[in-house]
Structure formats: C-alpha cells, structure tokens
C-alpha cells in the first residue's frame, strides 16, 4: 500500500471583493495533518467543507499554501509528474474527463505515453476494457453510455496506466441506485489504495477509515461506523432517521 502524508497543510486562495476591489485570503483547508496507509479511506463533509480540495491535494491538482503533501515520499509540489503517475483521479462527472469520442479511444489516449506503437496500445487498451467488462461498449460514443457505464469507462481510462492510488471525488453523486451498486462492487475488487469523497454513507461504511471535513479542518478521523455517526450528528440528522 502507498503512504500518503499530509503535514501541516493549509490551502488558501486570494479572493477579490467585487465592491471594494480589495483582495483577501480565503482559507479552504487549515491545519491538516494525516497519514493515510489504509486500503480504503472515505472523506465525508458538507458541500464547501473542503473535502474536494483535500482530494485534489493528493495528486497535485491543488498545491498547499503551507505544509507538504507526500505520496510514497514524493512531494506533490516538487515532483508532480511522478506523483500523477502514481495517483489516478476520477471526477464526479465522467464527461469532464473522457476526452475522446469513444471509450476505447480514451483508454488508448491514457496509454499513448506508455505504448508508442499503435498495435501495443490497442492490445493494452483491449486488455483493460476486457478486465472491466466494457469491451462491448468500447466503440460507442461516450455520450450514448449510461451514467454508470461512463463512470466505469472513466475509471478504466484512469486505471489503464496502473496507478497505485485511486482518488475519486464523489463518484456516485450522478449515479442511480443500480449504477451505484455497480461502482461499489468495482471499487471493492480493485487492488489499488482507494481514497474517495462521498455523500453516500453506504459507500463510506465500506471504508476502513473515515475522515470528516468541516469548515476546512479534519473534524473526525477514525472508523467508518463512528465517522458516519459523527457526520450525521454534524448535519443534525438523528441516528434513528430512516435510510443511511
């Protein structure tokens, strides 16, 4: 398993007040220090709490204003390319990240820097598509796929280059119940270390460790059942309220 270390991380952005024209610093995350070595980690938090920022730190999409983020000892600020080779990232909306017209072409795009020969690339892409049971959908337009199929295709394109860590930002938000279950099963079968943010408490309960982010700080760090209970309490939802 990879080791991800966040040490004294602060993320702040400059925001301009449209009325006064003055800029001030808005803190998105502050005082974050965690060491992630578990196979499955879930991050919970309300919209705007900072959980997406936390995930984006992990492959260098966002760099810390202070502190450091390291993946297997590699600093995301100084060794971003090496970090991105280890950490794959899946976005909420797969259409944001599927660049090519068909899934097969998108998987091949991921492999372009790894396999210069077209034949090698095609064979490697076919192997990835077979592994995820997507071969039959590979030549359809990505716009014709269902939400779940698209999300799996985006996942396949990211996993094609065999990252050791997979980060997913609210991967089930746009999925219906059936596709959510399909995604859950797929994630459960992966060898990679998986770190995901979610509003889906069932998905969070599958994790070994849960972080709850609130107002830019880690408000809870512990086991899944306790983490989900903490989050529910934070949202003011009683534990006996039906459905998770």
């Amino acid at each position: 398993m990879s080791r991800i270390e966040l040490d004294g991380v602060r993320v702040a952005v400059a925001v301009e007040d449209p009325e006064s024209g003055r800029t001030h610093s808005k803190v998105l995350l502050d005082g974050v220090g965690v060491d992630l070595t578990e196979r499955r980690v879930a991050v919970l938090g309300a919209n705007g709490s900072g959980k997406s920022t936390l995930l984006r730190l992990l492959n260098g999409l966002v760099l810390p204003s202070a502190g450091s983020v390291r993946v297997d000892g590699l600093d995301t600020a100084a060794e971003g390319r090496a970090v991105r080779g280890r950490v794959g990232f899946v976005f909420t909306d797969p259409l944001s990240q599927l660049v090519m017209p068909t899934g097969r072409e998108d998987v091949e795009l991921s492999l372009r820097r790894h396999h210069r020969s077209r034949a090698d690339r095609a064979a490697a892409a076919q192997a990835v598509l077979d592994r995820f049971g997507l071969a039959a959908l590979a030549d359809q337009s990505v716009y014709e796929l269902s939400g779940g199929e698209r999300q799996l295709m985006a996942l396949a394109a990211v996993l094609a280059v065999e990252p050791s860590v997979l980060v997913l930002d609210e991967p089930s938000t746009l999925l219906d119940l059936r596709n959510r279950e399909l995604l859950r099963r797929t994630l459960a079968g992966l060898d990679q270390q998986v770190i995901l943010s979610t509003h889906d408490l069932e998905l969070a309960l599958d994790a070994e460790r849960v972080l709850v982010v609130d107002a830019g700080r880690i408000a809870f760090d512990g086991g899944p059942a306790e983490g989900v209970a903490f989050y529910r309490a934070l949202c003011g939802i009683p534990a006996h309220d039906g459905g998770r």
Partner: peptide, 15 residues
Amino acid sequence: RTGDALAARGLGDAD
C-alpha cells in the same frame, strides 16, 4: 474542468 481532468491524468505533462 477539462484542464483539471487532463492535469489529473498527467496528459498535459511535458514529454
């Protein structure tokens, strides 16, 4: 969004 997705996949990184 596209820029973020490309960066996340390392597709915009120098050769």
